[in-house]
Design a binder for these strands. Structure first.
Length: 191
DNA sequence: CAATAGATCATCT
DNA sequence: GATGATCTATTGC
């Protein structure tokens, strides 16, 4: 497999924008399924009206204010789940939404979980699609990314990556902030 | 192609 | 009671 050591906690204990950019090219692993992160979005703290934590600490946003290096998984539109990495030191809000993966292994089980995907490019090219493909549910909300069943690893392929910044997708507030980051010319990013 | 409707529910007003 | 960090199928050009 084209991956090695899991990222340590200090990787996540930084501003969400830095973590977001650095996540690109890393490998997300859950069981037999693994994929390369090709598209992410940064969500900031209380100043970012598009972020869930904008209103402050609630039952739902508790994990975002908790220690870094954990998963924040939330349920949206009555149907889909989305995966975030909690960033910043404990007590501060900030996270990174994982928006698309390039499938690397476990292709068979991914296809089984996403019967409607006709092409490999459709398996995990969106926040709701990737959680289905990789088998992430709300049960993983709060899970430790450093030691838990869901991990992020450095790729063995360390060839340079060209990163593009664009506005975030599907939000109404702060819609012009360039906090979406993609690997340039990658065919697995969402449409 | 592009545009739109419908599915469906946790969270917050 | 409305809304939302989405996706799919369908309709219409």
């Amino acid at each position: 497999m084209a991956s090695s050591a899991p990222l340590k906690r200090d990787f996540y204990a930084r501003p969400a924008i830095e973590v977001a950019r650095d996540c690109l090219g890393k490998i997300l692993v859950h069981g037999a399924a693994a994929g390369r992160i090709v598209e992410v979005e940064a969500y900031l703290g209380v100043d970012d009206r598009a972020a869930h934590c904008w209103r402050g600490l609630t039952d739902r946003t508790r994990v975002i204010f908790g220690p870094p290096g954990h998963a924040y998984v939330y349920f949206i539109y009555g149907m889909y789940e989305c995966l975030n990495f909690v960033c910043e030191p404990e007590g501060q809000a900030g996270c990174v939404l994982i928006r698309a993966l390039e499938p690397l292994s476990g292709l068979a089980i991914m296809r089984r979980r996403r019967p409607s995907a006709r092409r490999v490019e459709d398996l995990a090219s969106g926040p709701g699609k990737l959680t289905l493909a990789v088998g992430i549910t709300r049960k993983l909300n709060g899970a430790d990314l450093v030691a838990g069943p869901l991990q992020v690893r450095r790729s063995r392929d360390e060839s340079p990556i060209e990163v593009l910044a664009t506005p975030r997708i599907g939000i109404t507030h702060c819609a012009d902030w360039p906090l979406r980051f993609v690997i340039a010319d990658n065919r697995f990013v969402s449409r």
